[in-house]
């Protein structure tokens, strides 16, 4: 694998029981690539993200990933429910000052002492995003980070994602409308019509 490549999937197929979730997927992620994965729900986008992060075994094909620091926003928020917003960032080893900076950036500056149970769905999503951005890394893997946000907030969060991930690898599942607003983005559509084969 060349140095500038952080992940490469070759002819990856994933089956659950007899059901084919992904078929012959080829994907190469360079160290400054911005890739958006789009498509209707239930077509294997999240499975592809799980393959990329190493949590999903493949049925066939090969997966190569470079040992780079990776920040992930999962499909679910995956927050520490016993911790406050600030504590959720500190729990993964982020320094207080840095945590506060990113909580402010996502608009949770006034809610740092709130626990996830006291937050709305959109606030929780922004908290998960703040955690990933504050953690930082060479590769950002975001699974629908703008879900549950109102239009204005989603726009602000997209700008933040663009700024914070500049010069780094970004793989993000999102809607076309957001994907098209990311400069130099490669859009990968996964859908049933092309037998779930991605054209990369």
């Amino acid at each position: 694998m060349k140095n500038e490549i952080v992940a490469r999937l070759e002819n990856v197929t994933v089956k659950f029981a007899d059901r084919e979730i992904l078929k012959n997927i080829n994907l190469t992620v360079g160290k400054t690539d911005r890739i958006c994965i789009t498509g209707t729900s239930g077509k294997g986008k999240t499975t592809l993200m799980r393959v990329l992060t190493g949590f999903q075994q493949v049925t066939a094909g090969t997966v190569q990933t470079a040992p780079v620091r990776t920040a992930v926003v999962f499909q679910e928020d995956r927050l520490f429910m016993h911790r406050t917003a600030l504590g959720n960032l500190k729990a993964v080893g982020i320094e207080k000052e840095r945590a506060e900076k990113y909580l402010n950036a996502v608009g949770l500056g006034a809610d740092m002492k709130k626990k996830p149970s006291q937050m709305s769905g959109g606030m929780k999503r922004r908290l998960a995003l703040a955690r990933a951005l504050a953690y930082g890394g060479e590769l950002y893997v975001f699974d629908e980070p703008l879900t549950g946000l109102d239009r204005e907030t989603a726009d602000r969060m997209l700008e933040l994602i663009k700024k914070e991930t500049e010069g780094k690898a970004l793989v993000m599942i999102t809607h076309d409308e957001f994907a098209l607003r990311i400069p130099d983005v490669r859009i990968v559509k996964i859908n049933a019509d092309d037998e779930k084969s991605a054209l990369i």
């Binding site: 992930v72 729990a91 080893g93």
Partner: peptide, 24 residues
Amino acid sequence: RNMLELAQVYNMSFIRRLTEIYIP
């Protein structure tokens, strides 16, 4: 399991996993 995956991604130490995930 989701939280354990999160701990893996974010390189949480055993002590942190214990105090932030297992004990709660």
